[in-house]
Each structure stands twice: as structure tokens, then as C-alpha cells.
Design a protein around this nucleic acid. Structure first.
Lengths: 346, 346
DNA sequence: GGCGCAGTCGCATTCGAAGTCAATATGACT
DNA sequence: AGTCATATTGACTTCGAATGCGACTGCGCC
């Protein structure tokens, strides 16, 4: 198994990468020794390690993670699945996740969803790559979750909770945040409300919208108009236009299911209707994205504690990679009330 | 090699994944047959394929991409390397790249750089994972590029060009874009200029700033003050404050090295100095990010053709995966002039 | 000197799919 | 029916690193 060096027939065969055997031969030791030298806790003498490392350096050897994964059954990759929709906010999360994971020796294998229908194909792909775990920030159906569960891959949902399912999830407490907002607005004597929600099929939007509606009802605020948006800037603008058409008058406050729509709504109020915000209309959002703090907007909103949430997601997934038998767990984080200047709070 | 089913000693051994052998046994065929059924162009009879696929479905078999990669020497993963800064204000590219790559059968393995010093560690990691290629949107030193080149991994730089190096790169023509902006502004009889640049060590910022300065000089515009920023919103604001301090008067136009700083500058002008924009001051940016189109800003800027650029990056990297002998190539794209309302152009 | 022990080391096997090559099955055609 | 070309199939080897197990070393101790 050795003397077939390289067939001179091919013009350019595979580049013949440096393997642990090459290093072993060069250092005059066995392949196992080389392998052990690259494993932290292994039983290797100082002399051996020095010799092997020297050869490795001279040959430019890097252990092949693919081969390692095959035998250890551990790929050191975590799939991160995100849907297109909420693009303004998620890149931040992606970077956070990547940094936290790589600090713990795992890489991010990215899966983006263009269409809902891609989910099943994507799931197959994820499984093929033998990822250690997955962090999912996308809407999955019950059957799709079943499909994942049937494979032994730990997974954590990010900002998707399922009331009726025991599942790992890290969330921001949407309901609580909305209740805070409503409380503040009502305390400041706003007497009529409208809502610009996210897409119907977004669980997050549902929780936010329902949370606000519920509290408004508890506080005996009358009819509340709800206009559906898609989380985008344009839909926030459109939302205000539609509300004005429908209601024929201005509500005292508009609660938007996210910051970007709140910004769109605010821009429409000021530039399309010439309104003073917060003088004639209060607008609030949710998320605490960067632009919400820009002084043209200075949005009153609830900021998600992204750091703590990504931290939690990473910890949860890695704990479950180590100990698959751990029970499902939901970690719910309170948002941070940001009293900006887009709502009259006095 | 079979009767050692599972040692009852361990509480939970490895979950024993379904392999091609399992499928083969179940279908009463050989492992090779199973393998062939999952390879598009292979020579398999219809009957065989049907039988194997049925068994595969029944057992829930998915080919193991890790094992496949080991033997085919093709991981179907492309490393995307981004530095912290790039991401925050340029999030789209990551999603775009991911979607284009996955359409062509490749996944994104994400590497984010927190500190410059992480680059070498990261490079080792990238190589260990045997990625097919890398797309780099981060600043690398000459020696680091040498290091990559010495390994046989194709790579493409995104928006980093190296005047003195033959290297694969996809760029937006920063210089041309700035010259357009300057031409437009000067044609509209702006007579004094200032610049808020990006960080000193950013090649992109250098090109933009130099491009603008050069054209201004050609057009015989007098002294141009340059203030350094860091691409962030706050530094755009700070930039204007510093300029006012230094100059004691208002320039007719301020050219910012990116949109986010232009937005910061614009906010400072309006809210900190009570200025009319574009009435009393023109502000222009570069990039064409989403918020630049929001009606509070409606920025005059040069939009990078993100779609075409990511497309090009993906094509280039994949071409080079297939044919490593291809010569280095730079593809430079013209930006798109966006005549917003943040500059007086009439 | 003999014994036990811990620390190292190498042999051989393993992970799961792909591809080579030879064997067989199929079909076309005389 | 016989011949030959072609299409399928299976046995076996390969990719590169990790690891169980047995072998060997050197040391301390009786």
C-alpha cells in the first residue's frame, strides 16, 4: 500500500494534500502518534510532540476536519437557519452567533430560506452535513419539527416558541414587552389605538399583536384597528395610509410589530401627512434595531437583549450536543424598554 | 464485523445512523448500488433505483456528506469570511451569497472576524474544513494572502482590490462612483467641499476618498477638509461637528465614504445645527443601503449592484473550483447613481 | 534480579460513501 | 441459437484521522 506514488499520465491530478501519514513518515513515527499530537488531552511525550510538530510545520500539515468528523461523528458545525423575511435584524444575530460558536470550537453552516417551500429540502441538506446541532430562526410546521425530532439532532428555536410543544427555544418576551408599551401609552392618556402587525403567519408578530390587544382590552380601550404588514419599511408606510383610509381619523397611538415598520409609519406620518410625531401621533416599535436610535426617529421601542439571547442559544445547543438526554427548555428574556421620542409619554 | 450490536454498558451510545449499507441490506443489493442511486448521472436501472429509493425512504436514509467529501475531495462548502464592520452595514451580501451558492449546490461556512489578530487562526480553520473555496470580505495582509495562495484553495475578494497584485476580486468601482458624485455636485455649483472618510486602514474608504479628492482637484475646487470616521452612524454625526469646529463655517457639500455616515451627518445637520438639507447643505453617501431610501433621508448616493456583484463572486469562485488553473481576474462593476434629495442637484 | 506499574507507542480497525474493475445480465442482430 | 456489444451490478479499495488494545520502555521497589 505505498509505492504507487503518482501516475504521470494525468496532467494535474488532485493536489495531493499533506496527510498525517506524510508527517508520520517525515518524523519517523506512526500515524497514530501524529494524530495524538493534535489532540489536546492525549498521552504523548514532550519529545514526541516536539518532533511531530516540527515535521508538521515543515510540511504545512493541517489536520483534515472532514476525516476527523467521519470517525469522531462530530462535525463541529452548527447549522443556522434563517428565513429571508427579517433581514434587517438578523444579520446582527448571525454575527453574534458565529462569534460565540467559534469561541467554543464550532462553525456556522448557514442555511437561508428564500421560499417557505425550501424548508424540506433544506432540512435534508442539514442532516446530510451531519451538523452537531441547529439553531433555527424560521417558521417550521409541526410536521417539519417532527421530522427533525425523529433524527437525533439537537435544535434550538430562536424567537419562535410553541405554546403547545416541549421544545428548546430562546425568546424575547414579546407579550410582556407589548404590555409595557401599552401601559406606558395608556398612562400617558392615549385614548385610541391602532396596530400594524407583521405577516399573519409570523408567530412573533402574533404574540406581539395579541399581547398588545389583550392589554388594551384589559384597560378598556375601545375598538382597535389592525392593519397587516410584512415587517418591511414600505409596509409600515402603507399601514398608516390604510388606517387613515379606513378610520377617517387619526388614532392617538400606533403600535407596530417591529421597528422597521414603525419607522415607515413614522416617515409616512411626517412626510405624507405632515403630522407632528409625537405631538399629534405616537408611534412605537419593537426590536431595538440600530436605526431606531437614529435621531430622525429616536423610536420608543422594546429592545431585545441580543447578546444574552444568542449566548443562551449557543449554550443550550452545545449543552445538548454534549448531553442529548437533556429535557427541552425555554428561556424567555425580558426586553428593555427604550423611551425614545416617537411617543408622548409624559 | 456485525454481531456486536450495542454494548448495554453505556446509557446512550452513538445513535447508530442509517448508512448506505443498511439501505443495501434492506433492499437486498450492494452498497455500491445504493451509492450510485444517489448520484445523478450514474448507470442504474429503473428497477434498481426504485427499489433502493423505497428502502431509503423507509429507513430514513440520507447520504452522509462528510463521508462523501472525504472520498470525493469536495466538501461543497465555501468559506465566507467577513469582518465585523462589513457586516453591520452591509448585511445583504451574506444572504445573497448564501442563496446563490446554495442554488449551485454549495453551502456557506461562515467565518466572522472579531479582531484583526484572529485572521491567522481563522485561516487555519478554513483550511482544516477543506472548503472548496473562499469568498473574503475582510482586510488581509500581503503575507496572509501569500499563505492562502500557498494552499491550493481558490479565493475571491469581495470589494477589496489590490492594485499591485494579480488576484481574484469583485469590486464596485469606487473611484468612478465618487467622480460621478463630484461631477454632479460641482455642476450644481457647489463651491466648497468636505469629506468624512472611513477608517484609515480601509482600502474601500481610501479609494472613495481619493477618488473624490482627485476629481475635486481636477475641477479646481480649493481646500477640502477631510475628517476620519469609522463607517458608523455616530462617527458621521461627530464628523460634522468636528468639521464645523475646524472650519468655522459650512461647506456647500459633504461627501461621506458610506451611507450610514452620511445619514449620521445629515441627522447632525438637521437636528444638532438646525440646517436645511439640501437647502443649506448637501450630503452624499455611498453604498445604497436600505435606510438610504427611507424618506427621512432619501440619500443621494451611489448604489452598489449587490446582486450582480454577489453573482459574479459566486461564479468566479465556482469556476475556479472546477478549473484551478484559471488566471486571476478582477471584475469591476459600476455603481448606480441614485439622485435622492439630500443634495441640491438642480 | 525480578516484579509491577504507569507512561508511551504502533498496529490494525473504523467511520460511510464513491469509484474501479471485473463479472454478469441484457439486448440486438445475424 | 449463437455472437458480440452494451448496460448493470457487486466485491473491494480508497479517502484521512481517531482509537482500542497490546507491546514495549523505564523506573522504583522489594
Amino acid at each position: 500500500m505505498a509505492e504507487k506514488t503518482a501516475d504521470p499520465g494525468k496532467t494535474s491530478g488532485p493536489p495531493r494534500r499533506v496527510t498525517s501519514y506524510d508527517v508520520a513518515r517525515h518524523a519517523g513515527v506512526s500515524q497514530s502518534a501524529v494524530s495524538r499530537c493534535f489532540k489536546p488531552g492525549a498521552s504523548v511525550s514532550k519529545k514526541m510532540r516536539a518532533r511531530v510538530m516540527k515535521s508538521a510545520r515543515e510540511l504545512g500539515y493541517q489536520p483534515n476536519a472532514i476525516a476527523r468528523s467521519l470517525i469522531t461523528r462530530r462535525s463541529n458545525m452548527v447549522a443556522v437557519v434563517i428565513s429571508q423575511q427579517t433581514t434587517l435584524y438578523y444579520p446582527e444575530i448571525l454575527v453574534e452567533l458565529s462569534q460565540r460558536l467559534s469561541a467554543r470550537g464550532e462553525r456556522v453552516l448557514l442555511f437561508t430560506l428564500e421560499h417557505e417551500s425550501d424548508i424540506d429540502l433544506m432540512l435534508d441538506q442539514v442532516l446530510q452535513y451531519q451538523v452537531d446541532g441547529m439553531i433555527i430562526a424560521a417558521r417550521l410546521s409541526g410536521t417539519q419539527i417532527d421530522a427533525i425530532e425523529s433524527r437525533a439532532v439537537p435544535f434550538v428555536f430562536y424567537n419562535r416558541s410553541f405554546r403547545d410543544r416541549q421544545i428548546n427555544a430562546v425568546c424575547c418576551d414579546q407579550t410582556e414587552g407589548e404590555r409595557w408599551l401599552v401601559n406606558r401609552l395608556v398612562a400617558a392618556r392615549h385614548d385610541s389605538f391602532a396596530i400594524i402587525s407583521g405577516p399573519e403567519d409570523s408567530a412573533v408578530s402574533m404574540e406581539r399583536t395579541q399581547g398588545a390587544l389583550e392589554r388594551l382590552r384589559e384597560l378598556d380601550v375601545g375598538e382597535v384597528a389592525v392593519e397587516e404588514g410584512d415587517y418591511g419599511y414600505a409596509s409600515g408606510r402603507r399601514g398608516l395610509h390604510r388606517l387613515m383610509d379606513r378610520l377617517g381619523r387619526l388614532p392617538a397611538a400606533i403600535i407596530c410589530a417591529n421597528d422597521v415598520m414603525a419607522i415607515g409609519c413614522l416617515d409616512a406620518a411626517r412626510h405624507d401627512f405632515g403630522l407632528q410625531v409625537p405631538g399629534e401621533l405616537s408611534v412605537v416599535g419593537f426590536d431595538g434595531v440600530g436605526p431606531a436610535r437614529w435621531s430622525s426617529y429616536n423610536l420608543t421601542t422594546v429592545r431585545q437583549p441580543v447578546r444574552r439571547m444568542t449566548d443562551a442559544a449557543v449554550s443550550m445547543i452545545l449543552e445538548r450536543v454534549e448531553s442529548p438526554e437533556l429535557r427541552p427548555e425555554k428561556r424567555i428574556f425580558s426586553g428593555i424598554m427604550v423611551e425614545g421620542g416617537s411617543a408622548r409619554l409624559g
